[in-house]
Design a protein around this nucleic acid. Structure first.
Lengths: 243, 243
DNA sequence: CGTCGGGTTGATAACTTTCAAATTTCGTGG
DNA sequence: CCACGAAATTTGAAAGTTATCAACCCGACG
């Protein structure tokens, strides 16, 4: 009987009411804990037969590398997120995963998932929901990079992160801890690091938000939402999941 | 007993060997045919309780609109593709779907899918694989828009389309029919229509490919792959699916 | 201390958009 | 079969955004 919920439990629990049996099943997925150091890839493109993971502590990023060395970060994962679900299905990873901080994650074999789903269809639905939500986020990143200016895009990024972190108890309306460098931001936003720096300065000078020393402080949530054309229903309230 | 395979059957069949019972099940999903005219949205953002569809004839695009009217096309769907799978799961569509040509599609209810999966787990795997492949494509579009130049991005786009169309018998190494306007291309590639036009001219003048009058002609596949930094294994040969 | 990885700033270059206008294509009705 | 209008394509010129290059600063760390 543990008193502290895992981030995954907390996230799924906010969308589906979980029975104690389901809580136990979720808990059991967290056997096989692994630790990883920052900066050393945890998975890379082309690797076959990787397991999936549930991230319980720390941040990672999923990215792709181009021939010429440029990279595009597809998404950051935070506690409660799955890593490499798609790689399991394909038997081959199509992207890299790099721990940004020291990371604790639970290895999940395909069979674990199948067993868990068999024991609770509601859990299966919840996990599928989580996976679809991840896909919706990738789509939103695509829209950001394709059609938002650097400023709008950056604002949107921090708002999305804020919504996600609040969901697992790692952030408030005021702000949150954010261990990213401006280089990583650049690779995620499709910008150069230099330009990210300028955009951050502008956000700061406009009184919208400050990102300094690993901390994001939101000064004016409403104006930020407006600048970013951020959809409030995007992650918070994705409609009734189970009826 | 039909002599011509549906595009979906053809696509799935190229990755999983399907038994005649499975072929029959797939065929049964194509009850409830619907026709749609070009240009009139088939699904739009916020709509609840949409069915999913299997596209059997024509092209559609999935897109999102911004407040200021800009739009980003997330992907085009061609015969054999699913439409709106994610919308079914969320009970709410998070994007719009517009028929680009007159379209024939089969409506698929959630219950149809569940029944089909129950009758054949292999089919379930195949469909999941198709969904993951779609997600992989969105990721690749993200990379394209984030880190490839307009020329590279456009080249990559046409190569991807080529690979997809070949899979359902609608294209050859030489080229394919492509009913897109330069405006749509622009909305998909995150460029302005004017610039798309210039890029197309450059591709033509470099002897790489021609896109004119609804036809794409590939002049130099190898050089195109090189320019686009296109991964040959990307869609053709995604590793052994079922073992 | 000395170095090294961020972060910051200015100057310049490159790429892409925007605006405007001409040209071509294509569907429709005469 | 032709004429007409709407839509799509094409091109030039100018403006705007973002990248690149080059310094410089700063704090962490051996």
């Amino acid at each position: 009987m543990q008193s502290v919920q895992s981030p995954l439990t907390r996230k799924l629990g906010s969308f589906v009411v979980l029975s104690s049996a389901e809580l136990k099943t979720l808990d059991d997925l967290h056997r096989r804990r692994r630790n990883f150091v920052a900066g050393r890839d945890l998975m890379h493109q082309g690797q076959t037969d990787q397991a999936a993971y549930i991230l319980s502590d720390g941040w990672v990023c999923s990215y792709k590398l181009m021939r010429d060395g440029k990279r595009q970060i597809v998404d950051f994962q935070i506690p409660g997120d799955f890593l490499g679900l798609r790689s399991v299905l394909f038997h081959t990873a199509d992207h890299n995963i790099e721990p940004i901080t020291p990371v604790t994650a639970s290895e999940v074999l395909a069979s674990d998932l199948i067993d868990a789903f068999a024991s609770s269809p509601r859990l299966a639905t919840a996990v599928l929901w989580a996976a679809s939500r991840d896909e919706a986020m990738v789509v939103e990143h695509l829209v950001s990079i394709g059609r938002r200016s650097a400023l709008e895009r950056t604002a949107h990024f921090f708002l999305e992160l804020s919504a996600r972190l609040k969901l697992v108890g790692l952030g408030t309306v005021e702000g949150y801890a954010c261990p990213l460098s401006q280089y990583m931001l650049a690779d995620a936003l499709g910008l150069s690091a230099v330009h990210v720096n300028r955009v951050l300065r502008e956000l700061r000078e406009e009184g919208l938000l400050t990102f300094q020393k690993g901390k994001v402080t939101i000064h004016d949530f409403e104006k930020l939402v407006d600048v970013a054309d951020f959809d409030r229903t995007y992650l918070d309230d994705y409609g009734p999941l189970l009826r």
